[in-house]
Design a protein around this nucleic acid. Sequence first.
DNA 1: AGGCTCATGTAATCAGTTACATGATTTG
DNA 2: CAAATCATGTAACTGATTACATGAGCCT
Lengths: 200, 200
Amino acid sequence: MSLRYALLAILRVGPLSGYDLQKQFSQSVGHVWHAPDSQIYPELRKMQADGLIEGEEQLRGQRGMRRVYHVTEAGDRAYQEWMASPLDYQRVRDPAHLRAAYLENTTPEAARDFLHRHIAYWESELEAFQGELDHIERMDSMMLNRRLAVIPPDEHEAAIEYKRFSYEGLAERARGEIAWARRGLALVDRLERVDAAARP
Amino acid sequence: MSLRYALLAILRVGPLSGYDLQKQFSQSVGHVWHAPDSQIYPELRKMQADGLIEGEEQLRGQRGMRRVYHVTEAGDRAYQEWMASPLDYQRVRDPAHLRAAYLENTTPEAARDFLHRHIAYWESELEAFQGELDHIERMDSMMLNRRLAVIPPDEHEAAIEYKRFSYEGLAERARGEIAWARRGLALVDRLERVDAAARP
DNA sequence: AGGCTCATGTAATCAGTTACATGATTTG
DNA sequence: CAAATCATGTAACTGATTACATGAGCCT
């Protein structure tokens, strides 16, 4: 149920159309919370029905139309309440560690393949996180600048630091996953040697 | 869709009733993949319909009944195929890092509260992982011993080592989250001091 | 007799994924 | 005029959550 709060967080900075929101999502916040357009549009409608946001229809050209949403007072309150409420941690459901726990059930080749893919996946994630951190460092993140434009200068540091804090946490997790999978590869090698020694 | 493979992984070791399976789940594998009984029973029925497992009705006392499932050849094949196929990484959806990225939108108190809860959550997870690692170390894990009983002795080491590998990865992640949240607490403090200095 | 554990589910709902569907506007 | 991008959705399905529902057997 965090989707609506993710949307509110972005909309609070300033009104956006569903389309623009979706773009922002796939960039910045998308690294933390993915949502396809087919989920965003209906959710915006529901949020409007719940009074959290309001949509304003704007004409684009002759017949083109777009709906620009802004956060209502009730929406802002709901967001604040969410920020101050305890997060509900959903139960673990970790396919990678599930598979890792049973790697002896497959061939060394399949085990290595799994671990190589795990490394590739987290390396690409890490690259994305690093990219965001670079944006923050160079202050050219579209999102961040939009946000900084609407808050007083003495709050800029906090906005920047928390964003960095969040992405550094993600980057560290990615590095941890990569290091873990590399140790896994070493383990596969070692067990294969043990196995070869046992049956000459 | 990993639930059925998690169930197969446990059932492959030996036949179990839905009830026993659920118990095993909530212990060992449950740390990696949570599933409530209301999901396990229907899934077992579906797996039977798909020919992956077979259930045998057993009487318990006069009228009591239990269905003991075992993996079919087709189920074993499906499991092997899954183990050799690339894992599908579902998109990120991380409420904690989402909130962290926007902590400047709330009060220092709420920010600290969030971080304290994050630490408490991951400390309890870490304790569970450590507990499992201790079981593995002392070789008194119910699950592990069940597994070791049905595989040849020269494969014992692999079974043990992969389990350790998996849980060590989880424990490390937990430690990472704790360290990250502690740095977050220090950041909240620092920003509060900056803020206090700015408006005397 | 009462409480615990064994044992098995159904029903309603929600969140998310995938595929499909359509059309206007801008830019080269 | 064609292609890219702007713009908005619907429909079918899957996987997971929550709440409800029931009853037998075992131990004290």
